[in-house]
């Protein structure tokens, strides 16, 4: 594991992996959505509204996956003091929040014609909204800690505690009566017809590639920022020292 701990080695890999993930993600996502929007048939009851599935389900999974990534990275950061783990957690927060927001928006648009309402306070919808607010809190906390130059350990603890919400989102439709339907895809099989399932899985792959690409790109930005700041600080120190030496020289 420690061979990946080296930021220089990480940057070498990320340099070619980032554009690869972003481009392949765009291609796969575009193809999957085109497939779902134009080739898949309308649903028996929902008609064309079913097509929102191809955005809603991948973004819901990645919204939860983003926080799972934050939790794992936070755990690694707290136990092994891994320098890249804190950066990875920070980098996953913004795309994760974006996916959670898209999931909530598309779900609401789907709910209006299907259920007859934009929003209800049932277990699934409420816990997903809590996840979005947890993301906002995490982003605010981790970026302010980074700006003050403080340790990100508090953010890591927040990331771990917030992870409790992820299984709650997942189980909310099983534990409690909810307006949201129970899971269609379980380990026992799928209640989604293959004509919808395949473009959906393709969209999941595409969105996941995009997610990975964005996280790597953001990690590179954070590393570059840290380096630039360290360099500026060294330059400032050197300039101060030179000024001190000159001042001493003029006094004597």
């Amino acid at each position: 594991m420690h061979i990946y701990a080296n930021p220089a080695r990480f940057l070498r890999i990320a340099k070619w992996l980032t554009p690869l993930l972003l481009v392949s993600g765009l291609v796969v996502t575009g193809a999957a959505l085109l497939w779902g929007f134009t080739q898949a048939p309308p649903d028996r009851l929902m008609g064309d509204t079913v097509r929102i599935l191809f955005i809603h389900v991948p973004t819901a999974w990645l919204g939860m996956g983003g926080w799972t990534a934050i939790a794992i990275a936070s755990f690694v950061e707290l136990v092994w003091r891994h320098p890249l783990a804190a950066i990875a957690a920070r980098a996953a927060a913004v795309p994760g929040a974006m996916f959670a927001a898209i999931c909530l928006a598309t779900g609401s648009i789907w709910g209006r014609p299907t259920w007859g309402t934009w929003w209800v306070w049932d277990g699934r919808l409420t816990s997903m909204l809590v996840l979005l607010f947890l993301y906002f809190g995490y982003i605010a906390l981790s970026s302010s800690l980074a700006r003050e130059g403080q340790s990100s350990r508090i953010a890591a603890i927040f990331g771990l505690v917030g992870a409790i919400n992820v299984p709650i989102i997942n189980r909310s439709v099983v534990w409690w009566n909810s307006l949201h339907q129970p899971p269609s895809i379980t380990t026992g099989g799928s209640a989604i017809d293959p004509v919808f399932l395949w473009p959906l899985l393709a969209a999941v792959v595409g969105f996941s590639l995009l997610f990975g690409g964005v996280v790597l790109a953001r990690m590179r930005i954070i590393l570059a920022d840290t380096q630039a700041e360290a360099r500026l600080r060294r330059m400032a120190q050197k300039a101060e020292m030179n000024a001190d030496v000159q001042a001493e020289g003029s006094v004597s």
């Binding site: 309308p42 649903d43 028996r44 269609s184 919808f196």
Partner: peptide
Amino acid sequence: KHDENYTPR
């Protein structure tokens, strides 16, 4: 309430 089944027409 929509159920978990998605079926084409």
